[in-house]
């Protein structure tokens, strides 16, 4: 899955560099970035770069973890044992991806508990897409195809992020993510080709509901994307929101044709001159509403996470108590 938070966090000014020594460090940092070089955890970095990354990586991690919920909704109701095993494996991957990312963010000096606390207190966000409900089994397939498809589009450029621990986590994630999209498309293909009319209608309905929210995953239009310029300058972000969105639409329009579904946009049309698909206006009011906390499932998702965390507290404590007892035994 992925994060769009760089664009949705509150605006914050970079602190001016003061001392001579800091200016020299800053000059070296900039030179390394310009050179296409990597920054490692123990290297000097401007405070604003560190903060931006903690925010982006932790919110990316939160997205992976919260992203387990909409799919988890269908584990017990998967149509076959095969689909259930696949869905479980995919959800397990999302959990793993969250862990890679929390660990990458921790290299920047923020503890996991701090990050989780920020999520639970509502200070940190996660991708807006997970605030939509999964109403039918077809939603699971569409999440794989469209949501993971959009996530992959977003994540591939992050494999070249200037912050190396993040880039390395992303390489691992992208390698594992390919099966997520394919299993979704495969599940939909079975419904479209071997299914009943009702099942085909179910797929079309799921596509209708997820198409626009998937396009919003790329974040606001470039003109309104407040943090893009700085993040591009620092090699945190490599390709603009609008360029990625266009790339996704071009790839997906063709896949929709093979699948036999219609994308719910009357303006979607191949433009020979541009060499891209044209598409209709995106409802950015809806996007900001969902980011702001007022999507269909925002409260439910957060409540689920907080509940899981609180109910797991005795387990975390018990494990520590056990470890303490064992080490006392060894010392004796």
């Amino acid at each position: 899955m992925y994060t769009q938070m760089m664009d949705t966090q509150g605006a914050e000014k970079a602190k001016a560099v003061t001392t001579l020594e800091e200016q020299e460090l800053m000059r070296r940092f900039d030179a390394r970035i310009d050179d296409g070089g990597f920054i490692e955890a123990k290297d000097w970095m401007p405070e604003h770069y560190r903060k931006t990354l903690v925010r982006q990586i932790s919110q990316h991690a939160h997205s992976e973890i919260v992203g387990m919920l909409p799919e988890g909704n269908w584990v017990t109701r998967a149509p076959t044992l095969k689909r259930k095993a696949i869905l479980l494996a995919k959800i397990q991957d999302e959990g793993g991806h969250g862990l890679y990312l929390y660990a990458a963010a921790e290299t920047l000096g923020t503890s996991r508990d701090q990050m989780i606390d920020a999520l639970h207190a509502g200070r940190a966000k996660y991708s807006s897409i997970f605030n939509y409900p999964t109403l039918s089994w077809a939603d699971v397939g569409v999440i794989g195809w469209l949501v993971d498809g959009a996530a992959i589009m977003n994540q591939v450029p992050l494999c070249r992020c200037s912050y190396a621990p993040y880039a390395r986590a992303m390489i691992r994630i992208c390698r594992e993510e390919s099966f997520h999209q394919r299993q979704g498309y495969d599940a939909l293909l079975v419904m479209m080709r071997d299914g009943t009319d009702a099942q085909r209608a179910m797929v079309q309905d799921a596509v209708n509901r997820w198409w626009w929210p998937s396009l919003m995953m790329f974040g606001p239009p470039d003109g309104e994307s407040v943090h893009s310029a700085q993040s591009m300058r620092w090699g945190i972000k490599r390709i603009s929101n609008d360029d990625l969105r266009q790339k996704f639409i071009d790839a997906t329009a063709q896949q929709a044709g093979v699948l036999g579904v219609t994308l719910p946009d009357p303006h979607l049309k191949w433009n020979e001159e541009r060499g891209h698909y044209d598409f209709g206006p995106i409802d950015w009011d809806e996007f900001w509403r969902v980011v702001g906390g007022d999507g269909p499932c925002n409260r439910e998702r957060l409540a689920e996470r907080v509940k899981a965390w609180e109910e797991g507290e005795w387990v975390r404590e018990a494990a520590l108590a056990h470890a303490r007892k064992q080490s006392m035994k060894e010392a004796a």
Partner: peptide
Amino acid sequence: KVYRHPTFYKLP
């Protein structure tokens, strides 16, 4: 768990 691999899914 062969289904963890992308090649498990045969697509057009």
